[in-house]
Design a protein around this nucleic acid. Sequence first.
RNA 1: GGGGUGUUAGCUCAGCUGGUUUAGAGCGUCUGCCUGUCACGCAGAAGGUCGAGGGUUCGAGCCCCUUACAUCCCGCCA
Length: 590
Amino acid sequence: MLSLKSKYRTHTCGELNAANVGETVTLSGWVHRKRDHGSLLFVDLRDNYGVTQIVFDGGNEALEKVHPESVIQITGTVVARDADQVNDKITTGEIEIQAKEWRVLTASAPLPFQVFGDDDISEELRYKYRFLDLRREKLHKTILIRNKMMKWLRDKMWELGFSEFQTPILTADSPEGARCFLVPSRLHHGKFYALPQAPQMFKQLLQVSGFDRYFQIAPCFRDEDLRSDRLLEFYQLDLEMSFVDQRDVQAVGEAIMPDLVRAFAPDANVYPEIPHISFDDAMLKYGSDKPDLRNPILISDVSEIFRGSDFGIFANAVENGSVVRAVPAPNTADKPRSWFDKLGEYATKELELGGLGYIVFAEEAKGPVAKKLDAERIAKLREIAGDNSSLFFICDEEEKAAKAAGKLRNKLGADLGLVNPRDFAFCWVDNFPFFEPDEDRGGAPKFTHNPFSYPVIDSIEELSTRDPFTIKAAQFDMVLNGLEICSGGLRNYNPEIMKKCFDIAGYPIEAVEKNFSALYTAFQYGAPPHGGCAFGIDRLVSEITGFGDSVRDTVAFPANQRGQDLLMGSPNEVTEQQLRDVHIKIRAKN
RNA sequence: GGGGUGUUAGCUCAGCUGGUUUAGAGCGUCUGCCUGUCACGCAGAAGGUCGAGGGUUCGAGCCCCUUACAUCCCGCCA
């Protein structure tokens, strides 16, 4: 490594220890904290590498006036601390510097918020003074971990035999999916570039170009509303491979992800197995296409138990095509009535359900639902719930019931403390349906995932003969602790199959040729079967570091939830001349 | 586009059912004291258009309406 020594310092603030006692050293850094004892003054000096305590003997009025976060340089002697004065919270805690000389390199004004400590500060203020926020210990560390993870991932991909590519940032709008950010063209009147939602078409073109194994840590842009887990611009570890089957692509994820967690969260308990769960199973048992496997609760379908029962609401609903899903809550039989009432309120307000029925399985099965059911039905339900537990029922149209049950499962897992945050459970969700009904087009089929997916079929004839809704996609997600961290699949590289799929989804062949012309044309000239996936880096950093709930805390300069950068002032207005250059006139607001 | 929550000192917050002179606390800032602190301590001071506007009331930080901003969620993000 390059020496960190310079005219400003002989050492960093994180490296001196008992072995350096007696040396004369020069340090530069930020005034982290001052403790003024009159004729004795302590300064904690901080830089990227750590904190060192500096001691000033005798009165020092000039230094007393220096604000925290000023940058100073000090020269002094390393002295050992007495045993009872050692500070084991810092790496340099065995020693301190007896200051001889010091000077202010740059002074700091009084701060809008403290860098020292871990006070909660509003995001607005933090983003406005992001350079100060980034000095704060936790965020500073997270950003450094992110750096290391990027290198780790990059090294790993090279090790696995992938080649690294760059693809255009100024590209063309793609018609599917999210809105693209648009960039006006000066040279081409009335035309626009678009920022890539992902380098999807480029990476497929690189496969057609014969590069075999592609990867890139790629910035992605989607002009959609933000959430705490969605960034304005985010990064994916994007990869694509030729001559592979689905399991070959997944093998890459299995080779990378568990080791990544182990490398950056040493206290993590990584589950040894990465199970494959079908989409249908995930929706039934976990009520989600991204199940958190750390939560032991499993959802059951109990429609048949309620069919024909005296519990009229459910029995009638089941006759009319609804389903009943049961969510067990272990060891809750002794919970007070208020606990159940609160969950009922959650169900009606958050889950927008009509209500939340439940049975408590103590010695007897208790609750209003239980009274309406005969002994045989109760026995079946008790088997699902287990003794000393309660069982919640959600009755609705299938998809809504499944999702609501999934949310209840997550809430119960969290409320009952069933999920250990240092556990890391991966799984694959696969066998996604290829088409789903499009409500806007009277239930006609539309693509469920992206239109580049390959259908799971044995012959092209099946596309004409089978009910489209029974066709599965060679498409999968990797899920970590209930977060979708990767999505991928095999690509539709065959122009005939591609045409047929678009036809089923209601696109004329001209639309394929127009909207996907690059790929469609490329596929006319010999395309290798290929597939790939992309990992969401920001979410991975967030989950592995366990820092905060917001993925924004994994990025040095994030935009706020409204997509603004409060420090740089983006987005901002431009001059009339700049608008004229790109042939744009601002319309009145609708 | 819709919904929840919030907006009181530089920061983080408290402020009860509308009525105690001058709206409080901790941190920060400023002044003074302090030789072993490491969240130093002690004493004191400054600092407020209670987001903005309107209304109800004898009386509003508190109730109502409008509005701005923030944050979280739904829609959206294949």
